[in-house]
Design a protein around this nucleic acid. Structure first.
Lengths: 135, 135
DNA sequence: TTTCATGCAAATTGTTTGCAAATCG
DNA sequence: CGATTTGCAAACAATTTGCATGAAA
């Protein structure tokens, strides 16, 4: 079970830095492939496998948050970014970021109540925005 | 955009029934592959592709709930009528159904506030259940 | 120089699709 | 019969892994 052992240290390489900076530059969730593409276009191309390895390491070390999109793709976000949710228009895709202290508290409470620790959650709201209703 | 059109009716075939019954027999989340294996052992083998197609259809029609496990696998469960959310253990996968009138109201309010109509939402809570913490 | 990280390409895994044969209405 | 569904295998997409090479310590 100790087969998956890895080094305890993480070398500050050029590509590792590039990934971290990319993650820092945009605060929201992106897929590994997005990040790879982004870096590829820039002046610091990084191999896709490396992007994956780096992101996994960052998740492991708690510096990055990972969650799954509806179709199973992993998306990552720098952890420190303020936690918020999205209100998405089904029709045009417009997105509004919303915060919900109440929801945060509620989920925490529910989890406590059932003896769950180390709580996190995902919440997305879908609807039809006013512009799309009019036309 | 109408390319993915399908028939509006769903024929009650032997395999479709088998899948639905399997879903009914156990109340918790199972992967498509689990269901396929299960049926394969029994007297009513159903092709894996068919299991997937059937499950997708059921999710589409709202008879089945689908969510993603930490590693991106889709898991399905027959869904009870009432709208509810899930509290899922990251480690062992145990799930608790929770209701959240407050959340329902909150999402509605947020949507209204931004001029969105026809609102729906998804919310999943993740954590580590007490049994898994103990060990 | 020794160890860890990178890149590439090949290997895996979960899921979807094309198409001929079986089945339902 | 005619339209839909099934099964199988091939196609796919996201992610991981093996291995030789390059860069830190």
């Amino acid at each position: 079970m100790t087969s998956t052992e890895g080094p305890r240290t993480m070398r500050p390489t050029r590509q590792r830095t590039a990934v971290v900076e990319a993650m820092t530059s945009f605060g929201d969730f992106r897929s590994a492939q997005d990040i790879h593409d982004l870096l590829g276009r820039g002046s610091t191309p990084v191999g896709l496998a490396t992007v994956y390895r780096t992101l996994n390491a960052l998740v492991e070390s708690g510096e990055v948050d990972m969650l799954r999109t509806e179709d199973g793709e992993a998306i990552y976000r720098r952890c420190s970014a303020a936690h918020h949710h999205h209100l998405v228009c089904r029709s045009c895709g417009a997105t509004v970021e919303v915060e919900g202290p109440a929801v945060e508290r509620w989920t925490q409470a529910i989890a406590d109540e059932h003896g769950f620790a180390d709580v996190s959650h995902t919440l997305e709201i879908f609807g039809t925005c006013s512009s799309c209703r009019v036309r």
